[in-house]
Computed example of a mutant assay.
Amino acid sequence: MSLFSWLRKTKPRLDAAQQQRLLQLPTPCALGDGSLRSQRWVVVDLETSGLNLNRDQVLSIGAVVIEDGAVDFSQLFERTLHRADNRLSPSVLIHGLGPSAIAAGSDPVEALLDFMTFVGDSPLLAFHAPFDQHMLGRALKDSLGYRLAHPFLDVAEIAPLLCPDAPLREAGLDDWILHFGLHVGERHHASADALATAELMLILFSRARQQHIDSPKALQERLGQWRRRKNAPSF
């Protein structure tokens, strides 16, 4: 046995039907020059067992779709994943995910296959996207052996990019909801937070068009420019 073989994780074991579903997942598309309105966007929010990027697990996935300039309520996704280890941090209990809900959750392989089928080739949006992107990517790799390659834009960056005059710095989702006077229902639950993020994003898409940012590719490019300016050293 290789000296380092114990460090390698066991390859996920999928049955024939699961393997077939995995092979049928579409290849993600790069952001293009079509209109922002015509693009199908999947807004996602995750609940996790904690904030450690390498140890904690995805417990719940909520997602909604923005298409044709509106939230499409016929396209909703919500799933709690079964986890055998029910040691939960206090923050998880705030989200209403107790041990019984997680014990009764869906098989992670099936849940993640269902979610990626729901996503299709669409780009993803999330508030504080790097965390969700990392956690989702790790879950997909561990459970399916799948590499997440979809465009993944951060609403927490898009908001200050498009609203430079807003008196907000390092703002959270609740701050932007209050700033725009949005009336949202339940919060701190994956599907509810995804819906709140989607409603915020509809306002931001309108701001983007007013600033002549008319395509997903243009939005991505403008976001990259904004990020470079923000991170540039000051002299």
Rank of each mutant, 00 (worst) to 15 (best):
G137H: 11
A139C: 08
D174A: 04
S100F: 00
Q19M: 10
G120T: 00
L204A: 11
D154S: 06
W41P: 05
R8D: 05
R83C: 13
I213E: 12
S89D: 15
L14S: 06
I66F: 11
G224H: 12
D142M: 07
S49H: 10
N86A: 13
G50N: 03
V184Y: 00
V119M: 02
Q133W: 02
L202R: 04
A156V: 07
G137E: 12
D193C: 09
L162I: 06
V119A: 01
S5W: 09
L76N: 09
K230E: 14
D165K: 00
E157V: 10
L161S: 01
G172T: 03
L31W: 05
M135R: 00
R207F: 07
V43K: 04
T10K: 14
N231H: 11
S89E: 15
L144C: 09
D15I: 01
S5R: 13
F4K: 07
A156L: 06
F127D: 01
I177Y: 00
V65S: 01
A129R: 04
H82E: 15
A194E: 13
D193E: 14
Q57C: 06
C163D: 11
G185V: 05
P26I: 12
P160S: 03
A129K: 02
M116K: 01
Q211G: 08
N86I: 09
F180H: 05
P167R: 08
A232R: 08
Q24I: 10
F73W: 15
A171M: 01
D33I: 08
E170W: 06
P164W: 00
R147E: 15
P28S: 01
L125D: 06
Q210G: 05
F118N: 01
L97V: 03
S91W: 12
F73K: 11
A16R: 11
D114R: 02
I66W: 10
C163I: 06
G34C: 10
L168R: 09
L200N: 11
P160C: 03
W41R: 07
F118V: 05
G172D: 04
S2Y: 11
L178P: 02
L223T: 13
Q19L: 14
T10F: 03
A101D: 15
R209L: 13
L23W: 03
D33R: 11
E221V: 13
A166S: 07
F180G: 00
L112H: 06
L76T: 10
G145Y: 07
G96R: 05
V92Y: 06
K141E: 14
